[in-house]
Computed example of a mutant assay.
Amino acid sequence: MTTPLRVEDAAPVTTTEQAQDRVADLVGHAISRQLWFMLLDACGRQIPLLIPVDDIPLRPKPGGAADMAAAVVRLLSEHGPGGSVILTLERPGTAALTAPDRAWARELVESFGKVVRITGMFVAHDEGVCELPATVADAVAD
């Protein structure tokens, strides 16, 4: 049996691969549809605050994540100046990226990318966690 992860004791997260491992440890596979925010300080140490947001729509409204991005920036300015965020879309289904995933990628990049550094963006699905590359945000979402 593995010891539960205490983010206070965990190694810093500075790469996309490390961020994906952290998401796998803390979020795991999908149970419901929600967004997760993990905040990192300027050195990549995770702030011991894991933020789930439930009741999210299948597709975001354009600009709909801007308020969440502003809240994350406020938290980072207080608890981790110069830090970054790991963004995770949890949704049941396969690892194959869907049109709604691409719409979320576009919204997250547009809302968060303008105000804070994104260390990684992921989808937690039925079988685990995969990267949600920012490049899919440029793809046609329909």
Rank of each mutant, 00 (worst) to 15 (best):
M1Y: 09
T2W: 02
T2Q: 09
V7D: 00
E8A: 14
D9Q: 15
A11K: 08
V13T: 14
T14D: 08
T15Q: 08
E17P: 01
E17K: 10
E17S: 13
Q18T: 03
Q20D: 02
Q20W: 00
D21E: 13
D21L: 04
R22I: 00
A24G: 03
A24I: 00
D25K: 07
H29K: 10
H29D: 09
I31V: 14
I31W: 06
R33W: 10
R33I: 07
Q34P: 00
Q34G: 11
M38L: 15
M38F: 14
D41V: 11
A42D: 14
G44N: 07
R45S: 14
Q46N: 02
I47V: 15
P48R: 12
L50A: 05
L50K: 02
L50H: 09
P52M: 11
D54F: 13
D54Y: 10
D55P: 00
D55G: 04
P57G: 12
K61D: 13
K61S: 15
A65N: 06
A65D: 01
A65H: 02
M68V: 06
V72A: 15
V73A: 14
R74G: 13
L75G: 01
L76E: 06
H79M: 15
H79N: 14
P81I: 12
P81K: 09
G82C: 12
G82N: 11
G82A: 11
G83I: 11
G83Q: 12
G83A: 09
S84F: 06
S84V: 05
S84R: 13
V85M: 04
V85I: 10
I86L: 08
I86H: 05
L87Y: 03
L87G: 02
L87Q: 06
T88S: 08
L89P: 00
E90G: 04
R91G: 06
P92A: 10
G93V: 04
A95K: 11
T98M: 03
T98F: 01
A99G: 10
P100A: 04
D101E: 03
D101L: 01
R102P: 00
A103N: 04
W104H: 09
E107I: 09
E107C: 10
V109K: 07
E110W: 01
E110H: 13
E110K: 06
E110G: 05
F112D: 08
G113C: 12
G113S: 11
V115W: 02
V115Y: 05
V116N: 06
V116L: 09
T119Q: 12
T119N: 09
T119S: 13
G120N: 07
M121Q: 14
V123S: 01
V123Y: 00
V123D: 01
A124T: 01
D126L: 02
E127C: 03
E127Y: 05
G128N: 03
V129P: 05
C130H: 00
C130F: 00
E131G: 11
L132V: 04
P133E: 05
P133I: 08
A134D: 11
V136D: 08
D138Q: 10
V140G: 02
D142P: 14
